[in-house]
Design a protein around this nucleic acid. Structure first.
Lengths: 168, 168
DNA sequence: AAAGATTGAAGATTCAATCTTA
DNA sequence: TAAGATTGAATCTTCAATCTTT
């Protein structure tokens, strides 16, 4: 509980979190690119477009979902559209916006990548987490998700805000 | 346990892991850059150079520790050396290699960033994990760490290798 | 003005090729 | 020939400026 360093347990919980993520994410991405020629980012975008269904989803909403800047997502969408996996059309109700939709080709690509990818997720991550532990993880992630947005201003702001009794 | 999709619990454990990482990592990085002008990557490098002490550490070993390619680390080191935070010298025993060392300026920068950064780690991550849960996380990360290297060839290889009874 | 989206410029990282030493 | 490290080219992402519509 010192201020200048983490306890061994804190270090293990925090450092391992960072380390494990990098390890799993890198390997998962390498496999996806090698087997199906798409990046994890592209996979994530295609997955959410599938969830969005026929109506598609606004570019700005999609950017928020995949946690990228709007500029970054525009570039990803450029590549996916060039390859015919998605399409962008002007939003009917708000002519400023664009709605992105997955194409049949995109749907086929995602489906073909999906089985292998999920097997990889199981092999590289889920394999190492028991049922009970999955419950614990889910609970922790849920808390973190609930906290953001609740008391944090947009993005890159609100640095010194005092968060009163978060878990009291 | 279907092959084509994750169960709700699997999804919560896996998806939350990815999502939480991005959330925490992005915010942590923004704060570090804003308050002390260094990236999380640079922080990580400086931290490990501090651990390495007077003798420093070989570039290739350092690259492995921070999980970057050697080329990537060279670029990071270029920037840090330009700013006077680290120095590189030819290894005494193997003239092919370089040893990186932190400078007094680098040490001062890291120390100045450290307290604030650790407070941020606590605020953004540890805050949401109870003592018992930290133990669970540490155990899971330990398993993942133990598994890599044990049966996986170098990097980007060994894709289809069958891992017999990992956790039996 | 403000919001949605795109674009040019810049920064960071990887891959493959290259240079030097073992 | 191989290993350690660096470099050029390519890729991906962010930031700030811009363009269009509200």
């Amino acid at each position: 509980m010192q201020r200048d360093e983490l306890s061994p347990l804190e270090m293990a919980a925090w450092g391992g979190f960072m380390r494990s993520h990098t390890l799993v994410y890198q390997e998962l991405g390498r496999r996806l690119v090698k087997s199906h020629g798409i990046s994890l980012t592209a996979y994530d975008v295609l997955l959410r477009l599938t969830w969005a269904g026929r109506d598609g989803i606004r570019m700005s909403d999609l950017a928020a979902e995949v946690m990228m800047t709007s500029g970054g997502l525009t570039r990803v969408a450029d590549r996916l559209e060039r390859d015919g996996l998605i399409e962008r059309v002007r939003s009917a109700d708000d002519m400023r916006g664009y709605v992105a939709r997955i194409t049949p080709v995109g749907r086929r690509t995602l489906r073909s990548a999906n089985r292998r990818h999920l097997a990889d997720v199981r092999e590289l991550f889920l394999e190492y987490v028991t049922e009970d532990e999955r419950v614990v993880l889910a609970r922790v992630w849920g808390r973190i998700k609930a906290a953001q947005g609740a008391d944090r201003v947009p993005v890159g702001r609100g640095r010194n805000r005092r968060r009163p009794a978060e878990r009291a």
